[in-house]
């Protein structure tokens, strides 16, 4: 079961998605449990996206953006940073668990960090097992 976990990852166009590209062109290995969604800026990521991912069966959500000060749009990642602190509290309160959501900063040159962060997140979610949300909603019919 724990092999089937799915993690939705949101990457910003300018840094983290570039980081994913760098990891790819350098043929770095990382687990296939991740599904990357590219957005123009991490500041565009609405908490609705994260909750929608869980609602549709994701077991974890990983949000990545530019390092502080590097945002292509100046300060989108600062807004995301504040937003994520509230999302952590929300998912903890809703019993999904703080651990299932993670955000980090990955620049376009950090292929290595992209691969290692994905590995870390996949291992963390594998330890936790599948998300309870889908199971609970399915059980209720």
């Amino acid at each position: 079961m724990s092999e089937d976990i799915k993690i939705v990852m949101f990457c910003c166009n300018w840094c983290s998605y570039g980081g994913a590209d760098t990891a790819g062109t350098a043929r770095m290995q990382y687990p296939p449990n991740i599904r990357v969604i590219r957005v123009m800026c991490s500041g565009r990521i609405d908490p609705q996206f994260i909750l929608k991912a869980f609602r549709d069966g994701a077991d974890g959500v990983f949000v990545a953006g530019c390092h502080m000060g590097d945002c292509h749009y100046d300060a989108g990642n600062y807004k995301l940073d504040r937003r994520m602190r509230l999302v952590y509290k929300l998912v903890e309160d809703m019993g999904i668990g703080r651990e299932r959501v993670h955000h980090d900063w990955i620049s376009a040159s950090e292929g290595e960090k992209f691969a290692s962060s994905v590995k870390m997140m996949v291992n963390r979610i594998k330890d936790l097992g599948p998300s309870p949300l889908k199971a609970q909603l399915d059980a209720e019919g």
Partner: peptide, 13 residues
């Protein structure tokens, strides 16, 4: 009516 409509039990395990 929210995307996560109820609290999950067992702390998300």
């Amino acid at each position: 009516a929210a995307l996560v409509p109820a609290k999950m039990q067992k702390g998300g395990k």
